[in-house]
Amino acid sequence: MSFYSFIESLSTLVDFSKPSLYISLLSIAANPLGWNLIGRNEYKNQTLTKLIGARVSSTILGTVIFFAGLLRDVLYRMALHDQPHFPLPYAIQTGLSWMIFGTGNLLVAASYFRLGFYGTFCGDYFGILKEKRVTSFPYNIMTNPMYVGAVLCFVGAAFWYERPAGLLIALYVHLVYSIALHFEGPFTEMIYQNRGASSKKDT
C-alpha cells in the first residue's frame, strides 16, 4: 500500500476537518505540559510556596489538574461524536470496551489510593514527599500504572462510542505521556535523591 492510499483509507476513519479533534489533542498535551512547567518552577523557585505555603499551593495545583483532566475527557467525547461512526459487534462494543475501560479505571484508582492526593498531584515538587517508594499494587506490576490506566480509558471509550478516531487519539495520548515521563521520571528521581542526601547531612 502506498503512502497516499494509506492516507486515503485513513481519511475514511478519521475526519481531519473537525476543529473538535484538534481542540481535544491540544487539551491532552496541555495537561502534562502545564503541571510539569509549574511544578519545576515551584521546585526551583518556590514561587507559590513563598506566597501561600507548600500544602495550600499543592492543593490548588492538584485541584486545577483534576478539573483540567475532566475537561480533557469532555473534549475527547465531543471530538469522538464529530468523528465517523463504525458499528461494532456487541461483544466488542460493550464487552471489550468495558473490560478495557474498567482495567484502566482500576489502575488509575489504585494508583491514587497508593499515592494519595499529594503523591498523585505533584506534591513532590512542593517538597511533600512520601517516606518510601510505593511498591504495592499496581506499582508491583508496572512503573507508571496511572498513565497506562489513562491510555486504556481512552481506548475503551473509542470502542464504546465506535469511533476509530478514538484509537488514533489514544495513540497520541500514549505518545504525549511517554514524552512527559521522559522528563518527569529523572526529575522525580533527582528530588528524592536530594532528599536522601539532605537527610544524611543532617545525621
Rank of each mutant, 00 (worst) to 15 (best):
L37I: 11
I38S: 04
T47A: 09
G34R: 05
W35R: 02
L80F: 10
Y43E: 01
F86V: 13
G95M: 00
A29P: 06
H85I: 10
T94M: 05
T47Y: 14
R72H: 14
W35L: 08
K44E: 15
N45Q: 09
I52L: 07
P32N: 04
I65K: 07
G69S: 13
T94D: 03
T94V: 07
L61H: 05
L88H: 09
I28K: 05
P87Q: 13
I28E: 02
D82K: 04
G95W: 01
E42K: 04
L33C: 07
P89F: 04
R40V: 06
Q83A: 07
P89W: 03
Q83K: 03
R77M: 15
S58A: 15
L70D: 13
L71E: 15
A68K: 08
P84Q: 03
P32I: 02
V56P: 03
L88P: 01
G34L: 13
E42F: 06
G62D: 02
G69M: 04
L61W: 02
S58K: 02
A91P: 03
D73A: 15
L61C: 12
L80R: 02
E42M: 00
G39L: 02
H85C: 09
H81D: 15
T63Y: 08
I28M: 05
A79C: 14
G69A: 06
L75K: 06
F67G: 10
D82P: 06
Y90S: 08
K50C: 04
L70I: 14
V74K: 08
N41M: 10
